[in-house]
């Protein structure tokens, strides 16, 4: 979380709030589905759970148009370079949600094939637990991320581990 405790000035505060508000409510996720969690991610976006309520339902096929990457599923050693490349192609500012146990820590598959946590490859803003996390969990993660953006600063440097 943004641990800024200094009392900000009137003008800058207002601008920051405005920008954050805009960013919060128009986040477009990149459709980066990998495994089981991708199914639940699709389920979250579908009619029953309706992610559109939070302004996040526009899953973009191109990473250029997306500012949120939901890493939904296990990341293999072979997929890690691809994942990083997709992340690099996204425009700033960008956020990453690590969805599920596999993406967050390797989950139950602690073996040669998997990257043990996607945070070794890209910086992660929010971890959503579960195997797979249900739509409610993912929505909770997304709302928490929105809150984090709302409370954060405009300037943030990403892309560097």
């Amino acid at each position: 979380m943004a641990g800024v405790s200094k009392e900000p000035g009137f003008l800058v505060t207002t601008l920051e709030k405005g920008v954050n508000w805009a960013r919060t409510n128009s986040m477009w996720p990149a459709s980066f589905g990998l495994a089981c969690c991708a199914i639940e991610m699709m389920g979250t976006g579908a009619a029953h759970n309706d992610l559109a309520r939070f302004g996040m339902e526009v899953f973009r096929a191109s990473p250029r148009q997306a500012d949120l990457m939901i890493v939904a599923g296990r990341v293999s050693q072979k997929m890690a370079p691809v994942l990083r490349q997709v992340y690099d192609q996204m425009a700033e500012p960008k956020w990453v949600i690590s969805m599920g146990a596999c993406a967050s820590s390797g989950g139950m598959f602690n073996n040669y094939a998997l990257v043990q946590g996607v945070d070794q490859v890209v910086p992660v803003d929010m971890y959503v637990p579960g195997c797979p996390p249900g739509p409610q969990s993912l929505m909770h993660g997304i709302l928490s991320l929105q809150q984090q953006i709302m409370d954060g600063e405009i300037r943030r440097s990403t892309g560097v581990l």
């Binding site: 293999s76 040669y112 094939a113 998997l114």
Partner: peptide, 11 residues
């Protein structure tokens, strides 16, 4: 293929 190779047969 192989981008989702999880090593489950080894696990």
């Amino acid at each position: 293929v192989g981008y989702l190779h999880t090593g489950m047969e080894k696990t």
